[in-house]
């Protein structure tokens, strides 16, 4: 397997055959934050970024990523500092079981890079390639909006004051 840049670090992995990126990440590199949901592009759980675009790692061959930049959930936080999207997902409980969460987060990163003030329909469309069975998506939308506001430098309601006393 040729070299590629994984979460900002140059990596070289020797993988026999034509293994999809998902297995390269999970089995060869031990990065299990990227999840298997179906293996055939029908759920979105295995989303990673290749050269900045969200794609399905179950359908991209590891070898086809040679020379490319691959970003996974493991690279999203800056050390211990959560990305505003991660913080907002945690604050609003947009992650319930957490299985689809990495996929939504990575997809949302790209959305906010392209559009710092996405409307609700734009969020719905951008996130429509990942299935979630826990949340009903609404908390995910709210978290994306909250993170977008934080990233624009706006003030958001502190968590303690949301829904206080119900």
């Amino acid at each position: 397997m040729p070299k590629f840049t994984l979460n900002g670090e140059a990596r070289e992995v020797n993988v026999p055959g034509a293994n999809p990126l998902l297995w390269v990440l999970r089995e060869s590199l031990g990065l299990t934050g990227t999840k298997f949901g179906c293996g055939i592009g029908q759920c979105g759980a295995c989303t990673v970024l290749v050269d900045g675009d969200p794609v399905l790692s179950c359908l991209v061959l590891g070898r086809a990523c040679a020379g490319k930049r691959v970003d996974t959930i493991e690279g999203m936080a800056d050390g211990n500092g959560l990305h505003p999207l991660q913080q907002a997902f945690a604050d609003l409980s947009a992650a319930q079981c957490g299985y689809c969460t990495p996929a939504f987060l990575l997809t949302a990163v790209v959305l906010l890079k392209e559009n710092d003030r996405p409307s609700r329909p734009e969020i719905v469309a951008a996130l429509s390639g990942v299935l979630c069975r826990c949340t009903g998506y609404l908390k995910i939308y709210e978290a994306v909006e909250r993170a977008a506001a934080v990233m624009r430098g706006e003030k958001v309601t502190p968590l303690e004051e949301i829904l206080d006393g119900i």
Partner: peptide
């Protein structure tokens, strides 16, 4: 399909 699959 989906935005992700359209990227591929």
């Amino acid at each position: 399909s989906t935005p992700l699959l359209r990227n591929m």
